[in-house]
Design a protein around this nucleic acid. Sequence first.
DNA 1: CTGTTAGCGCGTTCAT
DNA 2: ATGAACGCGCTAACAG
Lengths: 343, 343
Amino acid sequence: MAENKKLTLKDIARALNISVSTASRALKAHPDISDETIRTVKEYAEKHNYVPNALAINFRKSRTFTIGLIVPELVHHFFSTVISGAIDAAKKMGYSVLVSQSNDVLQDEITACRTMLASSVDGLLISISNETVEGNHILEFIHEGKPVIQFDKITDQLQTPKVIVDDFEGAYQAVKHLIETGYDKIAHLRGRREVKNAMERALGYEKALKDFHKEFHEDWVKECKLINEQEGYDFAKALMESQNPPNAIFCITDLVALGAINYLKEAGIKIPQEVGIMGFSNWKLAEIVNPSLSSVDQHGYQIGEKAAEMLIEKIQNQDVSSHETVELKTNLVLRESTNLSQK
Amino acid sequence: MAENKKLTLKDIARALNISVSTASRALKAHPDISDETIRTVKEYAEKHNYVPNALAINFRKSRTFTIGLIVPELVHHFFSTVISGAIDAAKKMGYSVLVSQSNDVLQDEITACRTMLASSVDGLLISISNETVEGNHILEFIHEGKPVIQFDKITDQLQTPKVIVDDFEGAYQAVKHLIETGYDKIAHLRGRREVKNAMERALGYEKALKDFHKEFHEDWVKECKLINEQEGYDFAKALMESQNPPNAIFCITDLVALGAINYLKEAGIKIPQEVGIMGFSNWKLAEIVNPSLSSVDQHGYQIGEKAAEMLIEKIQNQDVSSHETVELKTNLVLRESTNLSQK
DNA sequence: CTGTTAGCGCGTTCAT
DNA sequence: ATGAACGCGCTAACAG
C-alpha cells in the first residue's frame, strides 16, 4: 500500500557519502558548497524524489506557514468572498489558511482561537463576533509574537492593524445618490448602535441628509436587532403606514432591503417610482431579487486579499506592534430598486 | 511586547528538580508516576501556564491534527455549507481544517494538493474540479498513508471513500412530485454527460417518466454547459417556443431554474399554473426568488459533517484502503414554483 | 569547501 | 517510581 519511508537528508548523505549538513546546504545552494556537490546532491534528490519533512522544518523554525482565519459565519456571501480573497492571496505568498467560524458566539470564538494557537498558526485574521468586547483571547496571539489583523467587524479596543470598508463614505454616497435622483424623504433601517459598521453607516446617512438639507426624523430611523428579512418587512410596513411616510429607504443590509421590497410589493407600492430602496453589501441576492436591488459593494474579495497580505507581511517582519487601519472604498451598484437618472 | 519564552518540559523539570521524562509522564498521569509527583507537576504546569509545544509533538508523532479541504469554489452556497459542516465536525473531534479552492481548474487543484501535502495535513476532503480526470495528485496522499475522501463532485476513477447525495433518487422524487401534482409534459435542463451528478439526475428524471408512463422527448432535454442563469433563460425560451412545449421544467440547478423563471415571467407564462419549475440544490436564492422555487435539498452541512467524521476515523484507524460510498438522501422543499396539492 | 557537533521539545526505551 | 539517553529531521555555529 503505502510505500512511505520518505527519503531524508540522512539517506541522501549516506548514499552520496557526504555529511548531512553538506546535503542540507547543497540543496539550498549555499555559497560555501562547490557547484559540483550541489549538482550531485540536487540530482540525487530529484531522482529519488526527496521531499523535505515539513514538520521537522516547522519545528526547527517554529513557524508553520499557516495563518488562521476566523469569521462569524461561513455560510454567508460576504464572508465567503473575504475568505476566498484571503486564501488566494495567502497561496500566492506560500501560506495556507486554517478556517474557523464563531457563529457570533463568544465562547466559540475563544475556542477557535485556542485551537489555532495550538495548531501554531503564524498569525490571525479575524472578524469578531457580536459578543466580543475585550478580546483577551485575541491578545494571546500578540503575546506569543503572532500578528493579528482584524477585518470588517472590528473593535477599537484591540490595538491591531485593521482592514475595513469605509462604511461612512459608502452610506454617504448611497444616500447622496438617492437624493440626487429625486428622493427627498429618506428613511434608514439601521443596525445596533454597539456595532461599529452600523454606526458608521448611520452617521453617513445623517451627514448626507444634513449636507443636502433634507428632512431628518428620528421616526425614520429604525434599529434592526437581527438584521433579517422579517425586520425589513416589519419596519418598512411601519414606515409606510406612518403619518409621514418616506419615499426611499436606505437599508443596513441587502437582506433587510429584501424584506422591505417584499412588503412594498405586497402593499402595491411601486419600486422605484413611489419608493426607492437601497441595500448595503451587494450580495448575490441583490441581482436576483425582483426588482433587482441597488446596493453598496464592499469588495469582500479585496478585503480578504489585503488583510492576508498585510498579515503575512507582518509575520515576515515580526511586526506585532503596529496598528494602522486600511480603509477600502466601497462602490455603488445601481439596479432597478432606485431611480437611475437625475431628476 | 512579546513575553514569549514559552515554558518547556525542561523548565518544569529544572524548577521541580526532577527529570524531563518524569515531568512528561506526570503530565499525562502515567501509572508509573507517584500521585504526589503527578500532583506537584500538574500544579506547577497549571500555575505557570504550561502549553505543550504543538510543533514538537506534531514532529515527533508526524501528524498535525489538521485535515485539508478542497472545493471547486468557495463563494458558493452549497460548498460553503459543506465547509461549515466539515469544520464543525472536525472541531468536535479535535481537528482543524485547511481550506483551499481549485476554481475548477486542474492546475490549481494540483497546486492546492501539493501545498496541503507540504503542510502535512493528516488527510484530505476533496470535491474535484470539472477538469480532473485521473487524479495522481490525489493518489499521492494515499501513497503517503493519508486517507482521502471525495464528496459531491467525485470520480470513480479514484478508489477512495465517497460521500455523495443520492442524485438519482432526488431527481426521481422531484419529477415524481411534478407528475403527481398534475404536470404531464416535463422537460429537463440537464448538465454535461461527463459530470456524474448531472448524469444521475438525468437518469432519475427519465426513470420517473418511464415509471409513470409520461411522454419523453429528446427535444425536452437540453444540456447546459455552463449551468448558469442565461442558459436557463435561453433553454426555457427554446422549449416554450417549440412545437410541443412542456408544462414543467426540472432544472439541474437553482440558478438555471432562476433563468427559466425569469423567461417565463417575461413571457407572461404563469408559474406554477401554466408551467411548473423545479430546481435542485435548494440554495438561498430558492427562497428569495419570486415566485419562490421548489427545489431538492442536498443537505450540504450533513455532507460536510459526515465526510469529516469519516475522514478522521480513517486517519485514526490508519485506514487508507477502504472505499465505501455513503449516499445521503435529499429531500424535496416545496415552494411556489410548483403546484402544491395533488391534482 | 566540508564535516562535526549540538540542539529545537517531546516521547520512549532502557536502566536503576 | 524515577532518570539518563536517544532520536525524530533539520539547521546552524563552529571547526578545520
